[in-house]
Simulated scan of single mutants.
Amino acid sequence: MKNLIDSANLNQSPEKYQVCNRCVMDTSAQDIRFDSNGICNYCQDFEHLLTTLPLSNPYQRQFELEKLVEKVRRDGKGKPYDCIVGLSGGVDSAYTLLKVKELGLRPLAVHMDNGWDSELAANNIQTIIQGLGVDLYTHVIDWEEYRDLMQAFFDADVIDVELLYDNAMQAVNYNLACKYDLHYILAGSNHATEGMAMPPGWNWFKHDVRNIWAIQKRFGTKKSIRTFPTLSFSRYVWLRKGRGISWISFLDYVEYDKPKALAFLAEQYGFRPYPYKHYESIFTRFYQGYILPKKFAVDKRRLHFSTLIISGQMKREEAIKDLQNIPYPDQQILQRDIEYFLKKMNWNASGLNDYIQRPGESHLSYSSEEPLYRCAWKIWKFFKPITSALK
């Protein structure tokens, strides 16, 4: 297996390589620009975003939090729950559930099992659920359907295989919000640890159901996918505007320092950490730690670390040192994950190596809702200043 671990399919010229002098974003981001001091547009834009957010003021943040809690509580009267909290087994979602419960709300915790949960994730979920005494709904995806979809995405050579999980996860949360007539999904996301813009080409439009079905139709072996939950762009807009369901980055409303939050969860609830963001899933760990850097020359640690650097939660020197290592806890775990992936996907080592060596393909090579989204986004940006002025 050594050739699988050591091989790389890089797409940038070493002569043109440059890394930001403030964060650790580099020229693997296609649209990166540097000023005369070697500072990139990514950290500059993110820093500006942080200063313009009304929730950056602690007093305003507390005021907005109290308003949000009151709205959630009022909307949930007479219902078994008043909000949905997605739970992955990672620190962000666990801390969100903790704070929501502390504020006196009645959340339904929702987890989606796509067959790739790590044992550590399962233990963390059970630990926090039992410790907080909240109900948990787990949606288990049909593995044979999901594997066929994943295989189709691998055969298509598109970059965002995680589009499948991300879209289905949102669909499950919105479906449950509809079932219980709830209007608030409180997500474990925030600008302080993940607000830096994703470089173009590093992922794909997450509501592109048309792209999912086009790829499955072209490469899938199953004639129909019957149980896989999906959320199209049009349904997403209807749920947000028609049903009034809000997907809220809850951690923007509280003081959130990720290392401190992790330490508290570990001490009070026996929560066990992961080395990098989203590594609670075995596939996400393998995808971000092996497939992305090897096949697409994308190391998402740069984006995650840079966000933490600019928000004051990580030293640049620490990030540079960590980036010198492979994006895995250690080589042994990587080897184990390769073997697990091969067995679970019914692949062999040569098949994985062939996949890594093939060039990537654009999602736009297949039918897509992305052009519709871009058009809607332009229209919304055009009319937003007008509607704001009329208020």
Rank of each mutant, 00 (worst) to 15 (best):
F296D: 01
A171I: 09
Q332W: 04
K295D: 06
S224R: 11
D82E: 06
F296Q: 12
D157R: 13
E280S: 04
W380D: 09
P371M: 03
L292H: 02
Q151R: 13
P275G: 12
V161C: 13
N325C: 12
I386N: 01
Y373G: 01
Q30I: 14
K101C: 14
M169C: 09
S350Y: 12
P359W: 00
Y17S: 02
G104A: 04
Y256R: 03
G312E: 04
Q12I: 13
F153M: 10
V140W: 04
G115A: 06
T221M: 10
K71E: 14
V19N: 00
S246F: 14
Y276C: 07
Q170W: 14
E317A: 06
Y146F: 15
Y137L: 13
K101D: 11
M1A: 14
D155F: 04
I291S: 02
S306N: 00
S234T: 12
Q324G: 12
K99F: 15
F228S: 00
N37D: 15
Q216K: 10
C178P: 04
I386H: 04
A187L: 15
D135E: 13
G89K: 08
R358Y: 03
F341H: 11
A156W: 01
E361P: 01
F219I: 06
V91W: 01
V254N: 13
S368L: 09
N167D: 08
F341K: 07
V158A: 08
L105P: 00
R147M: 07
P259L: 09
P293V: 04
M112T: 08
Y253Q: 05
A214F: 12
G270M: 04
Y81R: 10
K101G: 09
I333M: 15
Q18A: 10
F382D: 00
E369V: 01
R316A: 06
V298F: 06
